[in-house]
Design a protein around this nucleic acid. Structure first.
Length: 566
RNA sequence: CGGGGUGUAGCGCAGUUGGCUAGCGCGCAGCGUUUGGGACGCUGAGGUCGGAAGUUCAAAUCUUCUCACCCCGACCA
C-alpha cells in the first residue's frame, strides 16, 4: 500500500475527546473513526490489524476442533424470554419492533441462538461433543462506553460454545479452549494473564479471564508472587489477618460526637481499625440490607451480591437510611431497632472485643462480641482481597496489577440447555440436557489493548504478528529519480516475496515521514534516500529500537526474513 | 441513572461586560523556495457558532427548553 493512496489521515494533535492512549493513537493514525458513542468505523489500517487477530483466533479455534458458523444479529425476543436472561441483561439489550409489530432484540451474545440451533441437530450422544464458533458483531447498550475501542456498544467478538454429554466432557472442552486461548494470545505477541473470575450475569460454574496487563486496565488483578495464583479482585478469596481472641468484657457506651469514620473512631478511642466493626447498608433488589465487616477491611460488592442472590445492588442513600430509622454514621448490628437482613464477613466472628456503632447519634459501643451482642443472617467471605494479603493457595504475598479483560471462558453447565430444551439421548436411551461451555474474545478490545501495552510517546509499536504491515518503506526526497527508482523496485521486490509493505511515497519532509512512521508503529522501517543509495544501502530500523543501521540493498530480503523469525 | 465537563471550519483552540465583514494554529488547494525528526513565503477554498424558541435596534455572547459527546461511579469481551 502506498501512503499517498491510503484512506485515512494522520493527525498531529490529540483529539480532545480521547484521553486513553490507544484511543488517541488509533484516531491519530487514522485507524478508526467514531460515528456515535461507543460505535466506530475501522479504517483500512485498523481493519488489517483486526483481520490479523481474527485469522490467528480462527486458526486456533479450528485446530482445537471448532467449526465456524455465522448466526444472526436479529433475534426474536421470545427466545430471550424463554431462556430467562432478558431481565438479567436489562437495559443493555437493544430492542426493536419489525413492521408487523414483532419484538426483536439485537444479539448481545449468542448462547440462546446456538443452543436453539444445536437442539435442532443434536439428538444423540453420538452427535456430541461439538465446538461451534463464530466471529461476529455483538450489540450491547452499555451504560457507559469508554476509552475508544476498549468498551463499545457494537463490537466484534469471537464466541465459541461447547456441547458435551457430561461434566467430564465439558472439562475436556474447557481445557482445549483454555490451551487454544493461551496459544492465540501468545501468537499475537500479547501474552495474557489467566485469572480466576466471577462468572457474572452469564452465570455458570468455573470461569476464568484472560487479561492483558496495562496500567489503563479497568480490572484489578490480585497475583501471588510465589505460586502465580491470580484472580480478579472480584473473585479472589480474602485471607484475613488473624486477631488474637480476648476475654469478654461488658459492653460500654462511649460518646463519640461527630465521629463517623473508622479512622476517626480508631484514633479517638485509641484502638486499631481491626478492633472495630464497620456496618454498611445496601439496597439489594429494593430491600435494605446491612453488611458487617471488620474495620480494616472493605466490602467486595460482587461477593455480597452472590451472598444475597440479588441482581441489583447499590449503596443505600441517606433517604433509605432515615426511612428505616437508622442513624447514618453510627450504624451497627448491635441494639438495632429496625428489622433488617444482616450479612457479615467471616472476619467478625472471631477475635477481640470490637468497637461498633451505637445506633444513636454520637455514640459508639465498646466490647462488642459476635453472638453475645448481635447475630447475623448470613456469614461468609464478603471482603475485598488486597495487595499485601496472604495468598489463599500457598500463603505467599499477593500483589495487585491492572489488566484489560480480553477473553473470558465459562463452564455453563445445563441451565440454558434445560430451559431451551437442548437434550440428547444417552447410550441407555435416557434423555439428558446437553452440558455447555462458552468462550469469548473481544477482538476490537484486543486491538486496543495491544496498543495500551505496546506504545511509546511517538506512537504505536505493533507486535509483528498483528501489525497492519510488516515493513514500512520511507522514501526521502521522492522527487529524486534515483530514489523513485530504488524505492519502487524495493516495494515490488518485497511484495513479490510475500512481505506486506506500506510504502511512504509522498513528497513530504523527512520529519513528517518519520513521525508518521512512528505513529503507525510498523515493526520494520526501511529508509531510502540519495545518501543511502550512494553506497547501495538502505537504513534499517526496528520500531522497538532507537538506533538505525545501514545495510546493503543486496540481500535485504533475506536479511528481513531472518529478522521476522528472530 | 447520579455527579462533573464540553459543543465555534476536517483537527486543536480563541472570541462569551450583547456591537463592525466570526478569528488563530494545524491540515487542505495553487505557485515558488526548501527538506535526514512535524520547513518557509505568497495566494486561496472552507462556518446552519450543536438545535429550537425567546429577549433585543442588534445574539456565538443573555434566558428557557432540547440534543450530542467526553470524564468519574454501578456493568462486561
Amino acid at each position: 500500500m502506498r501512503v499517498s493512496r491510503l484512506f485515512g489521515k494522520t493527525l498531529r494533535e490529540v483529539p480532545s475527546d480521547a484521553d486513553t492512549i490507544s484511543h488517541q493513537y488509533l484516531i491519530r493514525a487514522g485507524m478508526i473513526n467514531q460515528l456515535t458513542s461507543g460505535v466506530y468505523s475501522l479504517l483500512p489500517l485498523g481493519l488489517r490489524v483486526l483481520v490479523k487477530i481474527e485469522d490467528i483466533i480462527r486458526d486456533e479455534m479450528n485446530k482445537a476442533g471448532g467449526q465456524e458458523v455465522l448466526m444472526p444479529v436479529l433475534h426474536p425476543r421470545e427466545i430471550w424470554q424463554k431462556s430467562g436472561r432478558e431481565a438479567g441483561f436489562g437495559e443493555t439489550l437493544f430492542h426493536l419492533k419489525d413492521r408487523r409489530g414483532h419484538d426483536l432484540v439485537l444479539g448481545p451474545t449468542h448462547e440462546e441462538i446456538i443452543t436453539d440451533l444445536v437442539s435442532r441437530y443434536v439428538q444423540s450422544y453420538r452427535d456430541l461433543p461439538q465446538l461451534l464458533y463464530q466471529i461476529q458483531v455483538k450489540l450491547r447498550d452499555e451504560p457507559r462506553p469508554r476509552g475508544g475501542l476498549l468498551r463499545v456498544r457494537e463490537f466484534i467478538m469471537k464466541d465459541l460454545y461447547s456441547f458435551d454429554v457430561d461434566d467430564q466432557g465439558l472439562d475436556i472442552s474447557y481445557k482445549k479452549m483454555k490451551q487454544a486461548y493461551i496459544n492465540l494470545y501468545s501468537r499475537c505477541g500479547l501474552p495474557a494473564l489467566l485469572v480466576d473470575a466471577d462468572s457474572g450475569a452469564i452465570g455458570g460454574k468455573d470461569s476464568q479471564e484472560f487479561m492483558l496487563v496495562a496500567n489503563s486496565g479497568e480490572d484489578e488483578i490480585i497475583v501471588c508472587d510465589k505460586c502465580q495464583h491470580a484472580a480478579n479482585v472480584e473473585k479472589m478469596v480474602s485471607v484475613k489477618k488473624i486477631i488474637a481472641p480476648e476475654d469478654g468484657l461488658p459492653m460500654e457506651e462511649v460518646a463519640t460526637p461527630g465521629l463517623t469514620s473508622i479512622e476517626q473512631i480508631s484514633k479517638f478511642l485509641k484502638v486499631a481499625p481491626d478492633h472495630t466493626l464497620k456496618a454498611v447498608l445496601y439496597v439489594a433488589d429494593g430491600n435494605l440490607v446491612m453488611t458487617v465487616i471488620r474495620g480494616d477491611l472493605e466490602i467486595n460488592e460482587i461477593k455480597l451480591k452472590k451472598a444475597l442472590h440479588c441482581t441489583e445492588l447499590g449503596l443505600a442513600g441517606e433517604n433509605d437510611l432515615s426511612a428505616a430509622g437508622i442513624v447514618a454514621g453510627f450504624v451497627s448490628p448491635v441494639r438495632l431497632k429496625t428489622k433488617l437482613k444482616i450479612v457479615a464477613d467471616d472476619s467478625v466472628c472471631v477475635g477481640p472485643n470490637f468497637v461498633a456503632g451505637g445506633n444513636k447519634k454520637d455514640t459508639h459501643i465498646k466490647n462488642v462480641r459476635f453472638q453475645r451482642d448481635f447475630t447475623v443472617d448470613v456469614i461468609q467471605d464478603i471482603a475485598k482481597a488486597r495487595a499485601g494479603d496472604a495468598c489463599p493457595e500457598c500463603g505467599g504475598l499477593l500483589s495487585s496489577v491492572r489488566g484489560i479483560e480480553v477473553g473470558h471462558i465459562f463452564k455453563l453447565g445445563t441451565a440454558l440447555s434445560e430451559k431451551l430444551g437442548a437434550r440428547f439421548l444417552d447410550e441407555t436411551g435416557v434423555s439428558k440436557p446437553i452440558v455447555m461451555g462458552c468462550y469469548g474474545i473481544g477482538v476490537g478490545r484486543m486491538l486496543a489493548a495491544a496498543i495500551e501495552q505496546n506504545h511509546d510517546d511517538k506512537g504505536i509499536i505493533w507486535p509483528l504478528p498483528i501489525a497492519p504491515y510488516q515493513v514500512h518503506i520511507c522514501g526521502l526526497y521522492m522527487d529524486n529519480p534515483k530514489v523513485i527508482e530504488a524505492t519502487e523496485k524495493l516495494y515490488q521486490d518485497l511484495q513479490d516475496q510475500g512481505i506486506e509493505v506500506l510504502f511512504d511515497d509522498r513528497l513530504e519532509s523527512p520529519g513528517v515521514k518519520f513521525n508518521d512512521a512512528d505513529l503507525f508503529g510498523i515493526p520494520f522501517r526501511l529508509t531510502v534516500s540519495p545518501r543511502t543509495l550512494e553506497g547501495n544501502n538502505v537504513e534499517y530500523k526496528r520500531r522497538t529500537e532507537k538506533k538505525a543501521q545501514i545495510i546493503p540493498l543486496a540481500g535485504l530480503v533475506d536479511y528481513l526474513k531472518t529478522q521476522f523469525n528472530a
